[in-house]
Design a protein around this nucleic acid. Structure first.
Lengths: 144, 144
DNA sequence: GTACAACTTAAAGTGGACTTTAAGTCAACA
DNA sequence: TGTTGACTTAAAGTCCACTTTAAGTTGTAC
């Protein structure tokens, strides 16, 4: 247990554990998204809580936050609890943007699904499938 | 009715109608995603069915297809019904990729939501909120 | 007839997120 | 002791999807 907590990893191992390249880790560090520890020879090493931290960053990144926004978030975090409202505002904005894009891509997917269904009908040689895709969409109420 | 069908638009008007810039339209044309008609002076003009076409392309693009894939799709389309299986395969691959990423971003969102809730609890000054975020996630069963 | 806006082209530039390169350091192993 | 292999740095390069620039043409409005 103690051992697990205190385990450390060189950059290559760390990178593999989180599914990024060592170069990307260095890039993230340059951008201020994370900090590394250094051994006596100047080589980076990382801990299990660094893994948690990067995974969390990747979740935020996955909801659409850009590197600069993550950087801002990290800076606020370093400034202590006084910046919690700022951080919260940033995360909520991200959440809103995400929900907006979510609705949009759902509609894109609907059209993609419809097109696939339309092709499949056409491929099965449905005699009446001379119907143009736009008409088909209209019929489904999926146009626009 | 006849009028609506035969209405044409210069590139600026067309661009506005579909929410792209005129430059982007020209870029898409260069990339082979669409064709324009030309007037006697060599200027592009577009029809209502061009609008439908670009909107459809944007739906595909919105599900994650890249310009080169859209180009491939357009080329197959120009080759006639013999390429329907190819087109269908491309669209289904897009659909699969989309579903995969969809699941991923849903998880990213879940973590974002949890983090927001955690900050809100902290902000409300919940006395017991010295709980680290990781522990909070574990408690919710949302870790990883 | 001249000003103006909207168009035309080819080519260069941009932004974001990495990725690669070049040159070097270091520690462990045969 | 010498050769790997993993690391170090700063800087340049890449990819994608546009966007901007520069120089020129055209149709309409005054």
């Amino acid at each position: 247990m103690q051992e697990l907590q205190s385990k450390t990893y060189p950059i290559g191992t760390f990178a593999k554990k989180i599914g990024l390249s060592a170069s990307t880790i260095r890039y993230y560090e340059r951008e201020g998204l994370l900090k590394s520890h250094r051994d006596h020879a100047g080589r980076r090493y990382f801990t299990n809580s660094d893994i948690d931290w990067v995974k969390f960053l990747l979740h935020l990144k996955g909801t659409g936050m850009r590197i600069q926004e993550l950087k801002q978030y990290v800076q606020w975090r370093a400034q202590g609890d006084a910046t919690i409202p700022d951080r919260l505002a940033l995360l909520k904005e991200t959440q809103d943007n995400f929900r907006q894009r979510f609705r949009e891509v759902q509609h894109h997917l609907e059209i993609l699904n419809d097109k696939i269904a339309w092709y499949e009908a056409k491929e099965r040689g449905n005699v009446n499938n001379q119907e143009p895709f736009q008409d088909y969409l209209n019929r489904l109420g999926h146009s626009e």
